[in-house]
């Protein structure tokens, strides 16, 4: 039950993009087409789970015992950057198909602040290892939901008749705002 609440919280109520406003760059940048949005979501799911796991272990295994908590930001960035690079190389070798599918989005994730955000979140909230896993997986699924929803809307927006000055980024940002408002509605999902 505890993990179910955690999952729903991570996925919907405090959605990374639409409630916490993390990872706005890929949210706006890679949401022009549905297919690329799905690719990006999968890449984030993959990297976020791995990065959170490793950073959780680095923090609780190395930094916390030595009372070097203040190093976590820089240490996490280092770990995430190396990890993404490593992942990219591994996927390229082991699964060229997946590599083709993820394409440019894999290296792009290095600069995705949602990854670092989730890593730091799990530490701040003092999750257990399992809690951290649930939080990371469902957090990235929430990211995927937001991205895919937004991409779907933008694809239709592309075909609709919009005033010239509202075309492109302008109307996209408005849509993002409305989507965010809609997600606020999930706040009542868990009482208390």
């Amino acid at each position: 039950m505890e993990y179910l609440v955690l999952a729903i919280n991570a996925m919907l109520i405090s959605n990374l993009v639409l409630a916490r406003f993390l990872g706005i760059c890929p949210f706006l940048g890679v949401s022009k087409r549905l297919s690329t949005a799905v690719g990006m979501s999968l890449a984030v799911l993959f990297v976020m789970t791995m990065a959170s796991t490793v950073t959780w272990m680095v923090y609780h295994g190395v930094l916390a015992p030595l009372h070097l908590e203040y190093l976590r930001t820089i240490a996490f960035i280092l770990v995430i950057a190396a990890l993404v690079q490593l992942t990219e190389m591994a996927i390229q070798k082991l699964s060229p198909v997946l590599y083709e599918a993820l394409g440019i989005y894999l290296p792009l994730i290095t600069t995705n602040c949602a990854i670092l955000g989730v890593s730091i979140d799990t530490i701040e909230k003092g999750y257990s290892f399992l809690g951290m896993l649930v939080y990371a997986v469902f957090g990235s699924i929430g990211f995927g939901i937001a991205l895919v929803l937004f991409a779907g809307i933008r694809e239709r927006l592309e075909l609709s008749d919009v005033p010239k000055s509202w075309e492109g980024a302008a109307s996209s940002l408005i849509v993002a705002g409305i989507l965010s408002l809609a997600f606020m509605g999930f706040a009542g999902l868990i009482p208390g």
Partner: peptide
């Protein structure tokens, strides 16, 4: 003393990551 830990840990992490990547680029060479 503590600052040495900090420096050590960070450079250790850096070297480790570097070594890992160097090794990976050989293993996963495409």
């Amino acid at each position: 003393m503590e600052i040495l830990y900090a420096v050590g840990i960070l450079s250790g992490l850096g070297v480790l990551a570097g070594a890992l990547l160097a090794y990976a680029s050989k293993v996963f060479y495409v």
